[in-house]
Design a binder for these strands. Structure first.
Lengths: 219, 219
DNA sequence: TCAGGTCTTCAACCAACGTTGAATTGACTT
DNA sequence: AAGTCAATTCAACGTTGGTTGAAGACCTGA
């Protein structure tokens, strides 16, 4: 008797998917609820029924994959700590645990994740609500990574550590925004869509930056 | 006879200033022309009269300070090349020539420049038009900096160089977006508004990354 | 003073917006 | 068969959006 529940909400997912794609492209204010409903092939009123008003929809899109991503990041961090024990893991390994989940999802799974990361890139650089939303959804896990980095960089000044993470965050989000500016700048030699090529460079680039800032002695 | 022209357009500047501030905060779609006119204390129709339609206004805001910034960047690059001659300048010095103008304008001059950089940060991470606009307004000068970096990093792989610049660009734009996320993350220890503190860390961070990627031998 | 622009105001247009409430469907329980 | 509740449709509400055109004000040089 129990199980035979409705597919709960096929349409709720369709709405979230369409919203994700459109918000990623044009931002919160650049997309109308009606357009999202049209793209999801769903009546306008259903958006309010299944999700809520526009602002709620926006946060629902952000939250949906944030949980998955956070779990995977924590898992990878614990793995890399465990496999380096009893030594602390290297800075490279920690950064890789932080960035690799993005690469994995973006290349192995569908366009949805790509859209999601592009959306996050916009949010991260938005003065309007960027600070609040990013802090709410990602910073709890970021703090765990900072804890690990402290062990890998003993004696590191706290401010150097925070700013180093800030630079990594900026480089990472611009990468996953995939604006194709670099395609143009490099005359096609580099491609924003070739995330594997970026990732194998981002990790050593950022690690070198962390070491440069955090290893130096303070007088 | 000649000179006594009207102040040409007092109001045009007021419109551009108001637009700059609002676009920086909420993006192109998040601000209405009517709101800009209200903030500039100007009739709605004057926006179209003095500048043009909304899209033209947006690009006018971007262009206005891009020219000033580009000139200053080129000047600082030439200076640092001249003062290092006949050796090529260091990577640090080149990056500093690229980033210092932002710091200078942002701290010494008014809120207008801060708003402008926040706007550029949004554009840089926007999939909608980010690639196009950034390339159009900034990449000609970026190419000059890449030329200088090639001399400072002889034998550097081209793709490593482009990606290194990409990472620098991401870190730089997130910094000048001033989203205050880092204030929250660091419990007030770091402040997004303290641009001098960021700048003195960004230059060595990025320089270390460039060296790490570009100095390594390719088998 | 008048004629010429330039600049400014006012009002209006229509399309699109987010959101809601009432009415309808459809499937499952009793 | 009737009743229940979630899901869905439809139409409408009141605002606000960007843009325009015609009319008015202002100034300058003749």
């Amino acid at each position: 008797m129990a199980t035979a529940r409705k597919p709960r909400t096929n349409k709720r997912d369709r709405i979230l998917n369409a919203a994700e794609r459109l918000f990623a492209k044009r931002g919160f204010h650049g997309v109308s609820v009606r357009e999202i409903a049209r793209a999801a092939r769903v009546d306008v009123a259903l958006v309010n029924y299944h999700v809520g008003k526009k602002a709620v929809l926006y946060e629902a899109v952000l939250l949906r994959r944030a949980e998955v991503l956070n779990d995977e990041r924590v898992q990878m961090l614990e793995d890399c700590i465990a496999s380096a024990a009893p030594e602390p893991p290297s800075v490279e390994a920690i950064i890789d645990a932080f960035t690799h989940p993005l690469l994995n999802r973006s290349t192995r799974e569908g366009q949805g994740w790509k859209d999601y990361f592009a959306l996050v890139a916009q949010v991260n650089n938005s003065p309007e609500m960027g600070g609040q939303l990013m802090s709410r959804y990602f910073d709890p896990v970021v703090r765990q990574f900072l804890d690990a980095l402290r062990l890998a960089l003993p004696g590191c000044d706290e401010r150097d550590l925070f700013w180093s993470y800030h630079f990594l965050s900026g480089a990472l989000t611009l990468t996953f925004a995939e604006t194709r500016r670099i395609d143009n700048l490099s005359d096609g030699l580099c491609q924003a869509s070739d995330l594997a090529a970026v990732h194998e460079r981002l990790v050593p680039f950022a690690a070198a930056g962390f070491h440069r800032l955090c290893d130096s002695p303070d007088p």
